[in-house]
């Protein structure tokens, strides 16, 4: 059984290391081709870019520590999983992508609560197919949102520059 092993995208690595995406992308390409390193990274499509497993990140990027990765996941990975319980399940304000993250494990809860017979049944197969369909749909919606966000961030950047420009030329006194 394959676990949920964490895969880094170039964007996540850029956030983690504080470096430039394009530079990272080129560096990763070099490392996959270097016979001494042989970084195991996959490109699923040109659009999506590289996916690098957590262990490979640890192996090939000397400056990244396991603690940094743990902190990164703590901060950004909202996928529900077993953690230490909190003393009082206080009412938390809804977190970004909370519902979507719950949807990622909904099928696991369903499968893990099935009896041995139910697990291999036709109904289960249909349920899982439905779940897969739903997740694919959600993923493509989110990919569209990602483009929207990128365009927005780009606009943001331009507006900031524009404002900085104006303020920089502001007449003194």
């Amino acid at each position: 059984m394959q676990g949920h092993n964490f895969q880094f995208t170039v964007g996540m690595l850029a956030e983690l290391t504080g470096s430039n995406r394009q530079y990272l992308s080129r560096k990763i390409k070099r490392m996959t081709e270097d016979p001494e390193i042989r970084l195991q990274a996959v490109i699923r499509s040109n659009k999506e870019g590289y996916r690098i497993p957590e262990e490979e990140v640890l192996r090939c990027f000397d400056q990244i520590t396991p603690q940094q990765i743990a902190d990164f996941k703590e901060q950004f990975d909202r996928m529900p999983r077993v953690r230490m319980l909190t003393p009082e399940p206080e009412k938390k304000p809804g977190r970004y992508l909370e519902e979507e993250n719950n949807e990622l494990v909904e099928w696991k809860i369903h499968l893990a609560s099935a009896s041995a017979e139910e697990r291999g049944s036709e109904e289960m197969r249909e349920y899982l197919e439905g779940a897969l369909e739903g997740l694919r749909k959600m993923q493509s919606e989110k990919l569209r949102e990602q483009v929207l966000l990128e365009v927005f961030l780009e606009n943001c950047e331009r507006t900031i520059q524009e404002l900085e420009g104006r303020l920089g030329e502001w007449p003194q006194g």
Partner: peptide
């Protein structure tokens, strides 16, 4: 044991998570 193992398997928990999972169940 079957019920517990089933959950740990479907969630593909590594050792530390399995331990935490069992602790959570035991505590509750």
């Amino acid at each position: 044991a079957e019920m517990l193992n089933n959950v740990m398997e479907v969630f593909a928990m590594p050792a530390a998570e399995r331990y935490q999972y069992l602790l959570n169940v035991k505590y509750l």
